[in-house]
């Protein structure tokens, strides 16, 4: 008896998935292309934050319980001491603030006289960093402010030390930030004491790098790098980091610059997000 087509299959008895495979390959490529061009991933993710919110809650639960217990068992003496410290800090800050008010007034006057727009005049809000700090092998920072607080995709994030990153996703009550040290982040920058524009990129570890910096241009160890503002995304003049290592490339036409960022994501818990420009 002649074997049928199905019986001719070797060691696997299941039906061949070749038709489904081809259809799904085409479909997945179309989806990836569409997502890359239109960014549908974030739109869908925005509408399905209810799937991720419980995970974030569970991951933050031990930390929250620990903090609650700490507050519960804090003695009166400890609270009194803390209060004293905070009051001292307020006095220091108010003195500092008086100086700043004077400087701000001078700055405004000078800007007006030389007709430079105030690029740092932006509305901003404070947010707290929560867990997790990683998503499927990619470094992210999650903050407790989202769409409800006016946080949107693309907004720059800083703290008192310098630039931290950029908002890449905003849910209703939380947002995801890509740190400047991530491989998937690039920032247009400028040296503090020269006019050389550069593009810096995270190296996926603790540092930033400029891979192809022309060797005829001057770069010194310790040079401070700040945002150039040419992308209209990051305000001009935010400190990013300083050069810690200069390595000549093989053909000596370019140098590799290693930059240590001023603010490490592991060294702070509060950040400030620039919302939009103030109406002057």
């Amino acid at each position: 008896m002649k074997p049928t087509k199905k019986e001719l299959k070797l060691f696997h008895n299941a039906q061949s998935p070749i038709f489904g495979f081809i259809i799904l390959i085409v479909f997945s490529f179309s989806l990836m292309g569409l997502d890359h061009r239109k960014g549908i991933h974030n739109e869908i993710k925005e509408k399905s934050t209810f799937l991720i919110t419980p995970i974030i809650y569970i991951l933050n639960l031990p930390k929250n319980i620990n903090e609650s217990l700490k507050i519960l068992f804090e003695t009166k003496n400890q609270l009194f001491k803390k209060n004293q410290e905070l009051e001292n800090k307020i006095v220091d800050l108010s003195i500092e603030n008086q100086k700043l008010i004077l400087i701000q007034a001078e700055n405004k006057h000078l800007r007006k006289s030389i007709e430079i727009s105030n690029r740092l005049g932006m509305r901003s809000i404070n947010a707290e960093i929560i867990l997790p700090r990683i998503n499927n092998g990619k470094e992210i920072i999650i903050i407790n402010k989202g769409l409800n607080d006016g946080v949107k995709m693309g907004q720059p994030v800083i703290n008192n030390l310098g630039l931290i990153g950029q908002v890449i996703f905003s849910g209703k009550s939380f947002s995801e930030i890509i740190p400047i040290t991530s491989k998937k982040n690039i920032v247009p920058a400028i040296f503090e004491k020269s006019t050389d524009n550069i593009i810096i990129r995270g190296n996926g570890d603790k540092y930033l790098e400029v891979t192809l910096f022309p060797s005829y241009r001057e770069a010194k160890i310790g040079s401070v790098i700040m945002t150039s503002g040419i992308d209209s995304l990051y305000p001009k003049g935010i400190k990013i980091g300083r050069v810690i290592k200069i390595t000549p490339q093989v053909n000596n036409q370019f140098n590799h610059l290693l930059i240590a960022p001023y603010s490490s994501p592991k060294a702070f818990s509060q950040v400030r997000i620039f919302l939009d420009k103030k109406d002057d």
Binding site: L24, S28, F29, L31, I44, N135
Partner: peptide, 15 residues
């Protein structure tokens, strides 16, 4: 949706 960066990437990998 939960952990990827492009829609369809893990779909492609799994198939």
């Amino acid at each position: 949706l939960l952990a990827g960066e492009l829609i369809g990437q893990y779909g492609l990998i799994f198939i």
